[in-house]
Protein backbone atom coordinates (compact mmCIF):
# COMPACT_ATOMS: atom_id res chain seq x y z
CA UNK A 1 0.00 0.00 0.00
CA UNK A 2 0.95 3.66 -0.19
CA UNK A 3 0.96 6.33 2.52
CA UNK A 4 -2.02 8.66 2.92
CA UNK A 5 -1.38 12.29 1.84
CA UNK A 6 0.32 14.60 4.33
CA UNK A 7 1.69 18.11 4.55
CA UNK A 8 5.49 18.00 4.45
CA UNK A 9 7.96 20.32 6.17
CA UNK A 10 11.75 20.06 6.03
CA UNK A 11 13.14 22.63 8.49
CA UNK A 12 16.87 23.34 8.74
CA UNK A 13 17.15 24.44 12.38
CA UNK A 14 15.88 23.26 15.78
CA UNK A 15 14.14 26.62 16.17
CA UNK A 16 12.05 26.02 13.03
CA UNK A 17 11.34 22.46 14.20
CA UNK A 18 9.98 23.71 17.53
CA UNK A 19 7.85 26.38 15.85
CA UNK A 20 6.30 23.80 13.54
CA UNK A 21 5.66 21.32 16.35
CA UNK A 22 4.16 24.05 18.53
CA UNK A 23 1.90 25.03 15.65
CA UNK A 24 0.73 21.49 14.72
CA UNK A 25 1.03 19.61 18.05
CA UNK A 26 -0.32 16.06 17.99
CA UNK A 27 -1.29 16.33 14.31
CA UNK A 28 2.37 16.38 13.36
CA UNK A 29 4.81 13.50 13.51
CA UNK A 30 8.59 13.78 13.30
CA UNK A 31 10.30 11.90 10.50
CA UNK A 32 13.73 10.76 11.72
CA UNK A 33 15.28 7.75 9.96
CA UNK A 34 11.83 6.56 8.90
CA UNK A 35 12.68 2.89 9.27
CA UNK A 36 9.70 2.23 11.56
CA UNK A 37 7.47 5.21 10.72
CA UNK A 38 7.45 4.80 6.92
CA UNK A 39 6.46 1.09 7.01
CA UNK A 40 3.63 2.05 9.40
CA UNK A 41 2.60 4.83 6.98
CA UNK A 42 2.83 2.49 3.97
CA UNK A 43 0.37 0.17 5.73
CA UNK A 44 -1.71 3.19 6.81
CA UNK A 45 -1.44 2.08 10.43
CA UNK A 46 -0.31 5.67 10.98
CA UNK A 47 -1.70 8.59 8.97
CA UNK A 48 -0.16 11.81 10.25
CA UNK A 49 -1.59 14.90 8.57
CA UNK A 50 1.72 16.75 8.96
CA UNK A 51 5.24 15.36 8.74
CA UNK A 52 8.20 17.33 10.08
CA UNK A 53 11.35 15.88 8.51
CA UNK A 54 14.36 16.22 10.83
CA UNK A 55 16.89 14.99 8.27
CA UNK A 56 18.00 18.48 7.25
CA UNK A 57 18.63 19.68 10.80
CA UNK A 58 22.42 19.28 10.71
CA UNK A 59 22.86 20.44 14.31
CA UNK A 60 21.18 17.20 15.53
CA UNK A 61 23.61 14.68 14.05
CA UNK A 62 26.73 15.04 16.21
CA UNK A 63 28.61 12.48 18.31
CA UNK A 64 31.11 14.15 20.61
CA UNK A 65 33.26 13.01 23.50
CA UNK A 66 33.50 15.21 26.59
CA UNK A 67 35.19 14.71 29.94
CA UNK A 68 33.00 11.95 31.39
CA UNK A 69 30.22 11.63 28.84
CA UNK A 70 29.53 11.13 25.17
CA UNK A 71 26.92 13.47 23.72
CA UNK A 72 24.92 12.18 20.78
CA UNK A 73 22.52 14.22 18.69
CA UNK A 74 19.14 12.58 18.27
CA UNK A 75 19.60 12.37 14.48
CA UNK A 76 22.95 10.52 14.62
CA UNK A 77 22.60 7.42 12.42
CA UNK A 78 22.86 3.98 13.98
CA UNK A 79 25.58 3.16 11.46
CA UNK A 80 27.65 6.07 12.80
CA UNK A 81 27.29 4.83 16.39
CA UNK A 82 28.56 1.46 15.19
CA UNK A 83 31.88 2.82 13.93
CA UNK A 84 32.47 5.61 16.43
CA UNK A 85 35.74 5.27 18.38
CA UNK A 86 34.55 7.15 21.48
CA UNK A 87 31.54 4.86 21.78
CA UNK A 88 33.73 1.80 21.31
CA UNK A 89 36.11 2.97 24.03
CA UNK A 90 33.78 4.44 26.63
CA UNK A 91 30.44 2.68 26.15
CA UNK A 92 31.51 -0.75 24.86
CA UNK A 93 28.07 -2.20 25.60
CA UNK A 94 26.52 0.12 23.01
CA UNK A 95 29.29 -0.68 20.53
CA UNK A 96 28.64 -4.39 20.94
CA UNK A 97 24.86 -4.10 20.63
CA UNK A 98 24.36 -1.75 17.66
CA UNK A 99 25.19 -4.39 15.00
CA UNK A 100 22.20 -6.39 16.28
CA UNK A 101 19.84 -3.60 15.14
CA UNK A 102 18.26 -4.82 11.88
CA UNK A 103 20.60 -4.72 8.84
CA UNK A 104 23.25 -2.23 7.63
CA UNK A 105 20.73 -0.97 5.03
CA UNK A 106 18.42 0.00 7.91
CA UNK A 107 21.16 1.30 10.22
CA UNK A 108 22.40 3.62 7.45
CA UNK A 109 19.13 5.55 7.77
CA UNK A 110 17.88 4.70 11.28
CA UNK A 111 18.71 7.17 14.05
CA UNK A 112 19.32 6.83 17.78
CA UNK A 113 16.63 9.38 18.63
CA UNK A 114 14.07 7.85 16.29
CA UNK A 115 14.40 4.43 17.86
CA UNK A 116 14.32 5.80 21.42
CA UNK A 117 11.21 7.91 20.81
CA UNK A 118 9.46 5.05 18.99
CA UNK A 119 9.83 3.09 22.27
CA UNK A 120 9.27 -0.30 20.69
CA UNK A 121 9.65 -2.92 23.47
CA UNK A 122 11.43 -5.20 20.97
CA UNK A 123 14.02 -2.57 19.98
CA UNK A 124 17.59 -2.55 21.22
CA UNK A 125 18.25 1.16 21.80
CA UNK A 126 15.63 1.81 24.53
CA UNK A 127 17.03 -1.18 26.44
CA UNK A 128 20.55 0.16 26.02
CA UNK A 129 19.57 3.64 27.20
CA UNK A 130 18.20 2.16 30.40
CA UNK A 131 21.22 -0.12 30.94
CA UNK A 132 23.65 2.75 30.31
CA UNK A 133 21.74 5.20 32.57
CA UNK A 134 21.52 7.66 29.69
CA UNK A 135 19.98 11.11 30.09
CA UNK A 136 17.75 12.50 27.39
CA UNK A 137 17.31 16.16 26.55
CA UNK A 138 13.90 17.32 25.30
CA UNK A 139 13.20 20.79 23.93
CA UNK A 140 10.10 22.84 23.27
CA UNK A 141 9.54 26.50 22.46
CA UNK A 142 9.73 27.60 26.08
CA UNK A 143 12.84 25.70 27.11
CA UNK A 144 14.47 22.35 27.65
CA UNK A 145 14.57 19.59 30.25
CA UNK A 146 16.65 16.49 30.98
CA UNK A 147 15.00 13.13 31.64
CA UNK A 148 16.61 9.97 33.00
CA UNK A 149 16.08 7.00 30.70
CA UNK A 150 14.14 5.23 33.46
CA UNK A 151 11.59 8.07 33.51
CA UNK A 152 11.44 8.42 29.74
CA UNK A 153 9.80 5.15 28.68
CA UNK A 154 6.14 5.21 29.62
CA UNK A 155 4.82 1.99 28.07
CA UNK A 156 4.26 0.37 24.70
CA UNK A 157 5.36 2.88 22.01
CA UNK A 158 4.89 5.65 24.59
CA UNK A 159 7.32 8.15 26.12
CA UNK A 160 7.22 11.01 28.60
CA UNK A 161 7.56 13.60 25.79
CA UNK A 162 4.74 16.14 25.50
CA UNK A 163 3.21 16.92 22.07
CA UNK A 164 5.27 20.11 21.67
CA UNK A 165 8.62 18.52 22.56
CA UNK A 166 11.41 17.04 20.47
CA UNK A 167 14.25 14.81 21.66
CA UNK A 168 17.48 16.62 20.77
CA UNK A 169 20.33 14.98 22.66
CA UNK A 170 21.38 11.80 24.43
CA UNK A 171 24.02 11.93 27.17
CA UNK A 172 25.87 8.65 27.71
CA UNK A 173 28.06 8.43 30.82
CA UNK A 174 31.40 6.63 30.36
CA UNK A 175 31.40 3.08 31.68
CA UNK A 176 32.51 3.05 35.30
CA UNK A 177 35.96 1.66 36.16
CA UNK A 178 36.09 -2.18 36.37
CA UNK A 179 32.89 -2.64 34.40
CA UNK A 180 32.27 -5.64 32.17
CA UNK A 181 29.55 -5.72 29.55
CA UNK A 182 27.63 -8.16 27.38
CA UNK A 183 24.76 -7.94 24.93
CA UNK A 184 23.04 -11.02 23.50
CA UNK A 185 19.77 -11.69 21.73
CA UNK A 186 18.12 -14.56 19.90
CA UNK A 187 16.31 -13.84 16.63
CA UNK A 188 14.81 -16.22 14.04
CA UNK A 189 17.31 -14.82 11.48
CA UNK A 190 20.06 -12.24 11.84
CA UNK A 191 18.53 -8.76 11.61
CA UNK A 192 15.00 -9.85 12.56
CA UNK A 193 13.28 -8.64 15.70
CA UNK A 194 14.68 -10.69 18.57
CA UNK A 195 12.49 -13.12 20.50
CA UNK A 196 14.46 -12.16 23.62
CA UNK A 197 17.54 -10.12 24.37
CA UNK A 198 19.43 -8.73 27.34
CA UNK A 199 21.93 -5.96 27.98
CA UNK A 200 24.14 -6.69 30.97
CA UNK A 201 26.69 -4.64 32.92
CA UNK A 202 28.72 -5.79 35.91
CA UNK A 203 30.88 -3.40 37.95
CA UNK A 204 33.32 -4.91 40.45
CA UNK A 205 35.13 -3.32 43.38
CA UNK A 206 38.82 -4.02 44.05
CA UNK A 207 37.95 -7.10 46.13
CA UNK A 208 36.05 -8.65 43.18
CA UNK A 209 32.78 -7.93 44.93
CA UNK A 210 29.93 -6.99 42.70
CA UNK A 211 29.32 -3.26 43.13
CA UNK A 212 26.60 -2.71 40.56
CA UNK A 213 24.70 -4.84 38.04
CA UNK A 214 22.38 -3.91 35.19
CA UNK A 215 20.10 -6.47 33.58
CA UNK A 216 17.73 -4.97 31.01
CA UNK A 217 15.56 -7.05 28.66
CA UNK A 218 13.95 -6.47 25.27
CA UNK A 219 10.67 -8.02 24.13
CA UNK A 220 10.00 -8.77 27.77
CA UNK A 221 7.11 -6.45 28.59
CA UNK A 222 5.56 -3.16 27.46
CA UNK A 223 8.92 -1.38 27.37
CA UNK A 224 12.54 -2.05 28.26
CA UNK A 225 12.37 -4.20 31.42
CA UNK A 226 15.01 -3.92 34.15
CA UNK A 227 15.28 -6.89 36.52
CA UNK A 228 15.93 -4.84 39.63
CA UNK A 229 15.46 -7.66 42.15
CA UNK A 230 17.79 -9.98 40.24
CA UNK A 231 20.39 -7.19 40.19
CA UNK A 232 20.07 -6.87 43.98
CA UNK A 233 20.68 -10.61 44.43
CA UNK A 234 24.12 -10.12 42.91
CA UNK A 235 25.15 -6.71 44.27
CA UNK A 236 27.40 -6.74 47.32
CA UNK A 237 28.47 -10.33 46.70
CA UNK A 238 31.34 -12.20 45.12
CA UNK A 239 29.43 -13.70 42.23
CA UNK A 240 29.50 -17.47 41.72
CA UNK A 241 27.55 -19.85 39.50
CA UNK A 242 24.93 -20.43 42.16
CA UNK A 243 24.16 -16.72 42.45
CA UNK A 244 24.11 -16.37 38.67
CA UNK A 245 21.60 -19.22 38.44
CA UNK A 246 19.28 -17.72 41.05
CA UNK A 247 19.47 -14.26 39.46
CA UNK A 248 18.66 -15.79 36.05
CA UNK A 249 15.72 -17.75 37.48
CA UNK A 250 14.36 -14.76 39.35
CA UNK A 251 14.64 -12.39 36.37
CA UNK A 252 13.20 -14.81 33.83
CA UNK A 253 10.35 -16.16 36.00
CA UNK A 254 9.39 -13.26 38.27
CA UNK A 255 10.43 -9.96 36.73
CA UNK A 256 9.94 -10.03 32.99
CA UNK A 257 6.44 -10.15 31.51
CA UNK A 258 6.82 -11.30 27.90
CA UNK A 259 3.68 -11.59 25.76
CA UNK A 260 4.70 -14.37 23.37
CA UNK A 261 4.32 -14.05 19.62
CA UNK A 262 4.22 -16.05 16.40
CA UNK A 263 7.91 -16.97 16.77
CA UNK A 264 8.10 -17.73 20.48
CA UNK A 265 5.71 -18.76 23.25
CA UNK A 266 5.90 -17.03 26.63
CA UNK A 267 7.57 -20.15 28.09
CA UNK A 268 10.20 -20.14 25.37
CA UNK A 269 10.85 -16.42 25.89
CA UNK A 270 11.38 -17.07 29.62
CA UNK A 271 13.65 -19.98 28.78
CA UNK A 272 15.71 -17.74 26.48
CA UNK A 273 15.84 -14.99 29.12
CA UNK A 274 17.15 -17.47 31.67
CA UNK A 275 19.86 -18.76 29.37
CA UNK A 276 20.86 -15.31 28.08
CA UNK A 277 21.05 -13.91 31.62
CA UNK A 278 23.51 -16.61 32.63
CA UNK A 279 25.60 -16.23 29.49
CA UNK A 280 25.76 -12.44 29.57
CA UNK A 281 26.51 -12.34 33.30
CA UNK A 282 29.40 -14.76 32.83
CA UNK A 283 30.81 -12.80 29.91
CA UNK A 284 30.39 -9.43 31.64
CA UNK A 285 31.95 -10.78 34.83
CA UNK A 286 34.93 -12.14 32.93
CA UNK A 287 35.43 -8.81 31.16
CA UNK A 288 35.21 -6.94 34.46
CA UNK A 289 37.73 -9.30 36.07
CA UNK A 290 40.15 -8.70 33.20
CA UNK A 291 40.21 -4.99 34.12
CA UNK A 292 41.26 -5.83 37.69
CA UNK A 293 44.50 -7.52 36.69
Amino acid sequence: MKPAPFEYHAPNTIEEVLDLKYQHGDEAKFLAGGQSLVPAMNFRIVQPSVLIDLNRVDELSFIKEEKNVIRVGSMARERHLEFNDSIKKHTPLLHEAVPFIAHPQIRNRGTIGGSIVNADPAAELPVLMLALSARLKAKNKSGERWLDAKDFFAGMFTTALTPDEVLVEIELPFAEKNTGWSFMEVAPRSGDYAMMGVATLVTLDNNKKCKQVKLVYLNAGDGPVEAIEAEKLLEGNIVNDELINSAASHASEKEITPFGNIHASVDFQRHLANSLTKQTLKQALQRAEETLV
Binding site: Y8, A10, L31, G34, Q35, V38, P39, N42, D53, N55, R79, P104, Q105, I106, N108, R109
Partner: peptide
Protein backbone atom coordinates in the same frame (compact mmCIF):
# COMPACT_ATOMS: atom_id res chain seq x y z
CA UNK B 1 21.70 6.92 -0.95
CA UNK B 2 24.85 9.08 -1.03
CA UNK B 3 26.85 5.89 -1.54
CA UNK B 4 25.32 3.91 1.33
CA UNK B 5 22.77 1.13 0.90
CA UNK B 6 19.22 2.00 1.90
CA UNK B 7 15.63 0.87 1.29
CA UNK B 8 14.05 3.15 -1.30
CA UNK B 9 10.58 2.08 -0.08
CA UNK B 10 11.32 3.61 3.34
CA UNK B 11 12.33 7.01 2.01
CA UNK B 12 10.14 9.68 0.46
CA UNK B 13 11.29 11.09 -2.87
CA UNK B 14 11.24 14.60 -1.36
CA UNK B 15 13.91 13.49 1.11
Amino acid sequence: FDGESARSCLTFAVQ
